[in-house]
Structures are given as structure tokens and as C-alpha cells.
């Protein structure tokens, strides 16, 4: 963190919450990116993601009981796909944290956290639908918004729309 910069109250609390997670998991997670708009850390050892999630939800000083959002992102430069989850502790604490998990672009997989937060269930299906990463351990991983027989993953940066769908012309 730069010196002389005023750190807001909520950022301090988020940093404190991060240090509890860091204490437990050490090098499995990256350092905290303490920006003002969205403090986040990245899970480096993705196989531990479900455990980290459970720890974040159940630790008495963390209690991240509310998953606000789960976003899938495409990083074509790094040849990776990723998810970003925004957590907070609803009605208990003031800290907020975002977590990034990344996987390989082709056939990569991320452990599912649908068993930890119900919110993740549909959001992970949506991320799969739009980006094509797999979620291991998800109860029913299938497309949610696009039809089941849709070709390609629409929100990837290199997506090319199909010409025909069931005999109907798709592009304008």
C-alpha cells in the first residue's frame, strides 16, 4: 500500500478479514489487492477453493454468509478463464472481499461452491453457459440461459455467432 494514503474504514476491515484467511491458507492465496473500489485476492491453489469458501463462511470472525455476485471473466491474453465472487457478511460484520479463481482456457475446471452458497448454483451454471469452464462437484452443470444445443460460449472474446439455429438465420 502506498504511504500517506488514507485508508477507509471498510478497507481496513476487509484487510483484517483477509489476514485471518491468509493465516490459515498461507501460500494457497495471493496477497490482497487493497484497492478502494473492490479489494480482492486470488486463489492460487484452485483445488483448495471449496475449503477456503467453507472457512470463509463458517469462521466466527469472518461469517461471509452472503455471496453477492459471481462473475465469469475471459482473459485471452493469459489464456485463462476465471470467476470473481463478491462476498460480504450480511447483518454481522462490515467487511467485504472479492475472490478470483482462474483456470485454463481450454477444458479448465474450478471446484464448485454451490454446496457452500446456494447462490453459486445458478451463477456457476451461467458462467459455464457463457464461458465454458467446468465446475467440478456442481449438482447439475448444464446451460441455463442459452438453449442446450447452442454452439460456442457467447461471452468469450473470440466468440463467433453461428449462422443458423434450427433453420433460422441468426445474424442480422
Amino acid at each position: 500500500m502506498e504511504e500517506g494514503k488514507v485508508i477507509s474504514q471498510s478497507l481496513q476491515e476487509s484487510a483484517a478479514a483477509y489476514s485471518i484467511i491468509h493465516e490459515k491458507f498461507g501460500s494457497a492465496i495471493s496477497a490482497l489487492d487493497a484497492n478502494e473500489t473492490m479489494p480482492f485476492f486470488e486463489v492460487i491453489d484452485t483445488s483448495q477453493w471449496t475449503e477456503i469458501a467453507l472457512f470463509m463462511r463458517d469462521h466466527p470472525k469472518l461469517k461471509f454468509n452472503y455471496m453477492a455476485c459471481l462473475t465469469g471473466v475471459d482473459y485471452p491474453a493469459e489464456e485463462k478463464l476465471g470467476i470473481i465472487c463478491n462476498f460480504e457478511s450480511l447483518a454481522l460484520f462490515n467487511h467485504k472481499l472479492a475472490v478470483k479463481v482462474k483456470c485454463a482456457r481450454d477444458g479448465g475446471s474450478i471446484p464448485s461452491v454451490a454446496c457452500v452458497w446456494h447462490t453459486a448454483n445458478w451463477h456457476e451454471r451461467e458462467a459455464y453457459d457463457m464461458f465454458g469452464m467446468l465446475f467440478t462437484g456442481h449438482p447439475e452443470l448444464k446451460r441455463i440461459l442459452c438453449p442446450d444445443d447452442w454452439v460456442g460460449y457467447p461471452l468469450r472474446k473470440d466468440y463467433k455467432v453461428q449462422d443458423q439455429y434450427h433453420g433460422i438465420k441468426v445474424p442480422y
Binding site: 484497492n35 473500489t37 473492490m38 480482492f40 453477492a68 455476485c69 471473466v73 470473481i84 463478491n86 472479492a98
Partner: peptide
């Protein structure tokens, strides 16, 4: 460059935008 998650109380609940 950066990311933000902002939200507001909609009539139906939390409408959030994640923008990168």
C-alpha cells in the same frame, strides 16, 4: 484500469454491476 462492484436497492432487491 480496475474493477468495481457497485449496487443499489432496486424494487426487487440488490441490482449490482461488476465492471472491469
Amino acid at each position: 484500469a480496475g474493477e468495481v462492484y457497485g449496487r443499489a436497492e432496486n424494487p426487487r432487491g440488490e441490482l449490482g454491476f461488476y465492471i472491469e
